[in-house]
């Protein structure tokens, strides 16, 4: 399955909807979207990965790159993910300590609201 990307604004959060496979072939499109959002002043990103079928280390690298970019503006990049096969990759690489990972968009929004 190819990669589908969409995004919308929800209060201060920009929610990025990702569907399909994030790999060495498709990850550049996600990278371009994250860079574009940051360049347009969106510094609080929530990436919804509930419809992601596949994620490899190239995709992890793009998410880390996005996190570094938003942090340069005191922003945040957090994730929504409950799929064990995706979470396992974050655990193996130790990135569960780097990203905020939530079980739902609502849970992430609530946590983000508390942190304001």
């Amino acid at each position: 399955m190819d990669l589908k990307l969409d995004h919308h604004q929800d209060d201060r959060l920009t929610i990025v909807e990702v569907e399909g496979e994030i790999d060495v072939y498709t990850a550049p499109r996600l990278r371009e979207l994250l860079i574009d959002l940051v360049n347009k002043g969106n510094f609080h990103l929530l990436v919804n990965m509930e419809k992601v079928d596949f994620l490899d280390s190239t995709g992890l690298g793009v998410l880390v790159g996005g996190l570094k970019r938003v942090r340069a503006h005191d922003g945040s990049l957090e994730l929504v993910c409950t799929q064990e096969r995706i979470l396992k990759i974050f655990r193996i690489t130790g990135l569960t300590k780097v990203f905020g990972i939530y079980a739902s968009v609502d849970e992430a929004k609530e946590a983000h609201g508390r942190d304001k």
Binding site: R31, V62, V64, G65, K68
Partner: peptide, 11 residues
């Protein structure tokens, strides 16, 4: 992991 040393091509 040290975020400062990671890039988005750290594969």
């Amino acid at each position: 992991v040290d975020l400062g040393t990671l890039s988005d091509s750290f594969t």
